[in-house]
Design a protein around this nucleic acid. Structure first.
Lengths: 194, 194
DNA sequence: TAAAAAAGAATGAACGTTCATTTTCTATAT
DNA sequence: ATATAGAAAATGAACGTTCATTCTTTTTTA
């Protein structure tokens, strides 16, 4: 009973303020006082909802990542063919970046800086299970080349850059040989020209 | 004479320390004192080489971006066909991300956060002129679809994600209609499957 | 020896977090 | 229905620390 009297609206206001301010100024350049002001709350109140600043941004990350994957997988289901599955997910990701651009920008910042705890990154990855399953199915069916799963995490961030990416922050690693192989595969599959 | 007695080695040490520390901790979480220590220099000495912290990171960005574009265009020349030009540049960018991964990671952070001044971003873009020219040539020859130049900046960061990207920090903008058109074009040109 | 370069200590502002207090809510007794 | 007591929630001010930058002094250079 006790813990749940805290207002969900206030929590949401804090999360939204965090997204907007971090997008504009970056994590370390947004003071708690500013987040509080934008959420119409006292600085001290933040600590009733979150342990500290790091916890606030971690939780915000997980929340946005969760909504991202929910959006990405909304029109997908497991009975689809591998090709159709990737196509459907691709289109939803594009739509998310188009329609939820503030959220997308926030994720881009989180995914390219050291601002999120490794633990929370891992937590975010967990929501990608449907994509991992699709990937595995594609490999089983011989439709997808036998590349590292590392590529898949890159795909989940950006379905095209996954062919190009070299760095993903955190513990997901790929060795240079795999990367080189991937680059070669990648070139043959793109066309910048008609 | 005066200004040039300052050691270029010391300046380089400061730039390199900035790259490494910002990669690990982020811009605002790397104190000047730490940069100084890693460069084996007094904090006060940094201010003989750079105006302030912002100037240090701006200059570092421009330096890395310059080396990036130099690398990307090293094997390209204007007598090549449009197709060959893009292929050659693509391969060099891949190589850069592979071999200069610390520099690539630093750029990714700069390109996805508000840590660099708008003015310095623009300065970085200037080095992309050869790519802009190639792009224009491709459109003139009718080889490249009539898409926004905005796409090209995305390409220069990541030749594949340019088909997917929605956000580039700074003043380069693309309207939603253009983006949507681009996404549709993009899907038909990629294959995640063999 | 004089001027530039470098150093380390000092300064003042900004920030995350906590503390002491007030306000709001809710459950019960009248 | 209303009043009230106790607890939870919220607050604003205060604390202690950290950090960018500057100041004064020392070292290096030519």
């Amino acid at each position: 009973m006790a813990a749940l009297q805290k207002s969900i609206d206030k929590r949401n206001a804090l999360i939204n303020a965090t997204i907007e301010l971090v997008n504009n100024d970056g994590f370390h350049a947004t003071p708690m006082s500013k987040i509080a002001k934008m959420a119409c709350v006292s600085p001290a109140t933040i600590y009733l909802y979150f342990e500290n600043k790091q916890d606030l941004v971690n939780k915000t990350y997980i929340e946005v990542k969760t909504s991202y994957t929910a959006y990405a997988f909304a029109t997908y289901n497991e009975t689809m063919s591998v090709e159709e599955g990737f196509e459907v997910i691709w289109k939803r990701i594009a739509e998310f970046k188009l329609k939820e651009s503030a959220n997308a920008m926030f994720l881009a910042q989180c995914d390219n800086t050291p601002m999120i705890d490794e633990e929370s990154r891992q937590e975010g990855i967990k929501h990608l299970q449907p994509l991992l399953d699709l990937w595995a199915r594609g490999k089983k069916e011989g439709i997808i080349k036998p590349l590292s799963d590392y590529m898949l995490y890159a795909y989940s961030i950006n379905p095209l850059s996954f062919l190009m990416i070299t760095q993903i922050r955190g513990s997901v690693k790929m060795d240079k040989e795999e990367l080189e192989q991937a680059y070669q595969a990648a070139w043959s599959s793109i066309k910048v020209c008609e």
